[in-house]
Amino acid sequence: MDYTLIKYDRHPCFSFEVSHKYARMHLPVAPHCNISCNYCNRKFDCLHESRPGVTSEILSPEAALQKYKFVKDRLSNISVVGIAGPGDALANWEKTSLTVDLIKRSDPDVLFCLSTNGLMLPDYAREIIDLGIRHVTVTVNCLSPEIGEQIYRFVDYKGKRYKGGEGAGLVIENQLSGIKSLAVQGVAVKVNIVMIQGINDNHIPEVIKKVKDLGAFISNIMPLIPAPGSLFENLPQTCMKEINRMRNICSG
């Protein structure tokens, strides 16, 4: 795969060169999630929270199309439509895929980006590719079920709820399989990692190496920001000094 073609495309999250030239728009059409992460509270919403995954409304695919048209008419440099929640894009695949299809018919030049926990990637990788989605972000917090069971409270997969190391192992297996399936088909995969001190911080270089070997294009180590109401609400926020130290360690 020729990553130089991706480096200079129109996706501000994947290319530093275009990050100040193009804009992205997130459409909240995916309300349901299939993993309960201990750092997450999807009900949290306030005036100062505008990050992906936090929203004051859920849109139908048809409403998302109308909102896209409204914003595009006023902000012509929008190049990317992202679906990042507030649940998981693939746990709501019918709504996610219909949204992409409707907007693609209206604007064939727009890029699409999905953010997912990766649990359903093996099930939908082929459909993602066939739909023309070329950027996917996967949150991979660990490779070890023993670490994962400290991060994931439960996992709902194909009608069954998994807990502990069994649930975490299922998540990890599907994430890695899905990343490989997408990367070999030319999809630019970005991997996000939430750095949680005392839980997965020393494990992160191993995660970075593994996803790179699978074909991930770029990674992003993010701080734990304790969300009110989450199980990790009383953990300390990961400081940027430690984030940057870890980024330097992994940059090789």
Rank of each mutant, 00 (worst) to 15 (best):
A30V: 08
V187H: 10
G252T: 13
S106K: 10
S106Y: 14
L121P: 02
R105D: 08
C46K: 12
K21R: 13
P61R: 08
K7F: 12
V138C: 05
L182H: 06
S15F: 04
E127Q: 14
N77K: 13
G178D: 05
F112E: 05
K212H: 14
P205D: 09
I225S: 12
Q175L: 05
N200P: 07
G165Q: 14
P52Q: 11
M1G: 14
K69R: 15
N234P: 01
G53E: 03
S219A: 14
E57W: 10
C113G: 03
D213A: 15
G82I: 03
T238N: 00
I243P: 01
Q175A: 01
D213I: 09
N77I: 07
E206F: 08
S56M: 06
N234E: 14
R42K: 14
L59D: 07
G132A: 09
I243S: 02
F44K: 10
A84N: 06
I218W: 04
F70L: 12
P226H: 10
R10M: 05
N41E: 04
I179S: 04
E57N: 09
T4F: 13
L170M: 11
R161G: 10
V194F: 00
N141F: 00
E233N: 06
L119N: 01
K190V: 01
V155A: 09
C46S: 15
I78C: 02
V187D: 07
L143G: 10
P108H: 07
W93M: 05
A91I: 10
A216M: 03
K212A: 14
I218R: 14
E17L: 13
H26S: 10
T99P: 00
A84P: 03
L182F: 07
Y152L: 04
V80K: 04
D156Y: 11
E206D: 15
L114Q: 06
P236R: 06
R74Q: 13
F112V: 01
I199A: 08
G118Q: 11
K69T: 03
K241R: 13
A64G: 00
S19D: 12
G87R: 09
I221C: 07
D201G: 10
F44S: 08
E146Q: 12
V189W: 07
G167W: 03
Q175R: 08
T137E: 07
E57F: 11
H26N: 15
P145A: 05
L224P: 07
C113E: 08
M25H: 05
G159M: 01
S56K: 13
D45G: 02
G165W: 02
S15C: 11
G53C: 04
A188C: 09
S181T: 12
V187P: 06
L224I: 03
V155N: 02
T238C: 00
I147V: 15
H135L: 08
N34V: 06
N34K: 07
S106D: 15
G53A: 03
I218T: 11
S76Q: 12
Y162W: 12
P12H: 01
G167P: 12
S177T: 15
V211N: 06
E17Q: 13
L119H: 01
D2A: 10
V194R: 00
F232S: 04
S115V: 13
T55I: 03
R126F: 11
I151G: 00
P28C: 07
D201H: 10
I83K: 00
G159Q: 05
L176C: 01
H11W: 02
G186M: 09
F112H: 04
K190Y: 02
W93F: 14
V171G: 00
Y8V: 07
H203I: 06
D9H: 11
H20E: 14
K210C: 14
C250S: 08
Y152M: 11
